[in-house]
Design a protein around this nucleic acid. Structure first.
Lengths: 140, 140
DNA sequence: TCTTGCCTTGACGTCGGCGTCAAGGCTTAC
DNA sequence: GTAAGCCTTGACGCCGACGTCAAGGCAAGA
């Protein structure tokens, strides 16, 4: 298939595929006329990249998975290098989540304080019955 | 005080302060020589901005807090507009945390699966005695 | 033949929050 | 007088993952 079809099947754009190629992640055969052509393996490789991107991976971080697939493994994470990246990203995620939860807690406290100090009391944003609940729960 | 001192006291750079000024967030009086001068109120305003930035606010989102302080309120969140931003950001945070936790769970599962399918079993990354500890610390 | 629609390469634009450099002015110390 | 150290404005650079535009080639259909 050519670049337009691959892009559409993967739910992305031709620009993105050319960009991946420029980064050395997605190579293409060429027709005599210079058109890029791809096969189903390329589609799988591309889907792997997109999945990881959706997970928040930077492009460079997808490279071990791409290499793994290129080596003939059935999945991109069937290699130690990919697994190492998984581990690193999970640790990053855990740290980030922890940070965000801390910020969330601080902001929640600030909000409560600020609301309490407002001249006219806790601003009735929208009347959900009474003030029994603000709708936000602080579960861990 | 002049820009250098303010920057240092706020733990930031002169470039940043000029940038804030260009965005209309931090105004300055001028000496006859054209030097920017600031007072303690400006420092407080700047600290407010920096705190919010640390919370992950975009500059534009700090504007209501800045306006609030300029109106003479003791804190930047003593105004309805600021509180509205708090609420929005908290909702954003909650959504983001939820997303990240979902991604985290998926990646954890993927990692387990991939490890299990590795030829030589679950890769002994490094032998830390036994598996008594995963060693995650919370960086600042 | 002409239009339509795919493809090519190349190159500049975007966004946010600054970093960094250039060229120069003011003041103070030596 | 000159070097140091502050300040000024202006402008380009950076990062990541592309978007978008330009100018043109190739193929298929009316």
């Amino acid at each position: 298939m050519r670049i337009g079809e691959l892009a559409e099947r993967a739910g992305t754009t031709t620009r993105t595929l050319r960009y991946y190629e420029s980064r050395g992640l997605l190579t293409a055969r060429r027709t005599e006329q210079g058109y890029r052509t791809y096969d189903e393996d390329d589609l799988r490789l591309l889907q792997q990249i997109r999945t990881l991107q959706d997970f928040g991976f930077e492009l460079e971080e997808t490279r071990p998975f791409v290499d793994c697939l290129r080596e003939g493994h059935p999945t991109g994470d069937a290699c130690p290098a990919s697994i190492a990246v998984y581990r690193r990203k999970i640790a990053e995620l855990d740290g980030l989540i922890e940070q965000l939860q801390a910020v969330r807690a601080q902001m929640g406290a600030q909000l409560l304080r600020a609301e309490a100090e407002l001249p006219h009391g806790p601003e009735p944003r929208c009347e959900l019955g009474t003030e029994r609940d603000t709708g936000t729960d602080t579960e861990g």
